[in-house]
């Protein structure tokens, strides 16, 4: 269509609903105690409430994995599909129904391994949606197999003597894709930062890619241990056009001013160092969005029949 076709049928209904956090609550989350996903779910519910998104006009699309249970725990529309294939489904939803709020929840296996092709292309399409990579560096649901983001030498059930390869860097990879328009990184154990990042992602018009560092207490408990215990490991990228939370200054003293418009700076900062960098790496709303490029006026059935009849004339005997 993506014609502008939003229906008028419910336009006349005066909608005086206000939504509380509870209104977005779906089934009780069944992640392990201590799993970082709980905190992400809370931040997302807070965002939905803050933005007063109508539950029926909000769609969460996920793949397969621990994090992909996400839609079940929300009272919005959800599509819990195939491993690695959340992005194509979400693209189809947003392409045809641009008026819906679309969120995608993926794990590191989903996004960076089996669905890596879709990740690159969804970034390039720049369809207006929020894509969350809940990165715990491991396959959790299937009980501890190496993922592309598992740190070097970290053991798993499939690579018990440690991984052989350096971990893939999702932020760097996304920043390398043509037409990438929003790339941010945050951590679930810093709820204020997580929330602000989600909010910035939601308000960005285009494909907002957010990598959320997420602790898995069962399989990768030690990976983010240092970052959690020593705030100095974290370096906050701050800017008026990015994220700046003065309240966090007390704890997170390492700061670097980075203008999200600066793609070269973003790519430099995305390189792996001892520091874990959080904030908005890059943001550019001027980039074309696929659903806008493909937007067409709608036609009634009669018009389409008339046009098709003209088309048949060309083939008439």
């Amino acid at each position: 269509m993506t014609h502008y076709g939003c229906s008028l049928l419910s336009c006349g209904v005066i909608d005086e609903r206000t939504f509380e956090m509870d209104d977005y609550q779906g089934a009780v989350a069944r992640w392990c105690p201590g799993c970082g996903d709980h905190s992400i779910l809370t931040a997302v519910q807070r965002l939905l409430e803050e933005e007063q998104l109508k539950p029926e006009e909000t769609v969460f699309v996920s793949g397969i994995g621990c994090s992909s249970r996400f839609p079940h725990y929300l009272n919005t529309y959800g599509f819990h599909g195939l491993h690695g294939r959340a992005l194509p489904v979400a693209t189809g939803v947003k392409l045809e129904r641009p008026e819906l709020n679309v969120f995608v929840v993926m794990g590191d296996g989903d996004c960076c391994s089996i669905g890596a092709g879709h990740w690159i292309h969804a970034t390039r399409y720049n369809v207006d949606m929020v894509a969350l990579l809940l990165d715990n560096n491991m396959y959790g649901l299937t009980k501890g197999q190496t993922s592309p983001t598992t740190p070097l030498h970290f053991p798993s059930n499939t690579q018990p003597r440690g991984t052989y390869l350096e971990a893939l860097n999702p932020v760097q990879a996304t920043l390398g894709v043509t037409n990438a328009s929003f790339v941010a990184q945050t951590a679930e154990w810093i709820p204020a930062h997580l929330y602000e990042t989600l909010k910035a992602a939601y308000h960005h018009k285009g494909f907002s890619f957010v990598r959320i560092l997420q602790r898995c207490p069962v399989y990768t408990a030690s990976v983010y241990d240092e970052a959690v215990r020593k705030p100095d490991v974290i370096e906050m990228m701050v800017h008026d056009d990015g994220i700046y939370l003065p309240d966090l200054d007390q704890i997170y003293k390492q700061k670097i001013v980075h203008n999200p418009k600066d793609i070269d700076g973003a790519r430099r900062l995305a390189e792996v160092t001892e520091r874990v960098r959080l904030g908005v790496f890059y943001r550019n709303e001027a980039l074309p969005r696929y659903e806008d490029l493909r937007r067409l006026p709608a036609h009634t059935a009669e018009e389409r029949v008339r046009l098709l009849s003209e088309e048949l004339d060309r083939y008439a005997v």
Binding site: H3, Y4, C6, S7, L8, L9, P297, A298
Partner: peptide, 16 residues
């Protein structure tokens, strides 16, 4: 005009 008409058209087809 396209935007407005598209909304009307979408509605027409729903009602049909």
């Amino acid at each position: 005009i396209d935007r407005y008409r598209s909304a009307v058209v979408t509605t027409v087809e729903e009602v049909r």
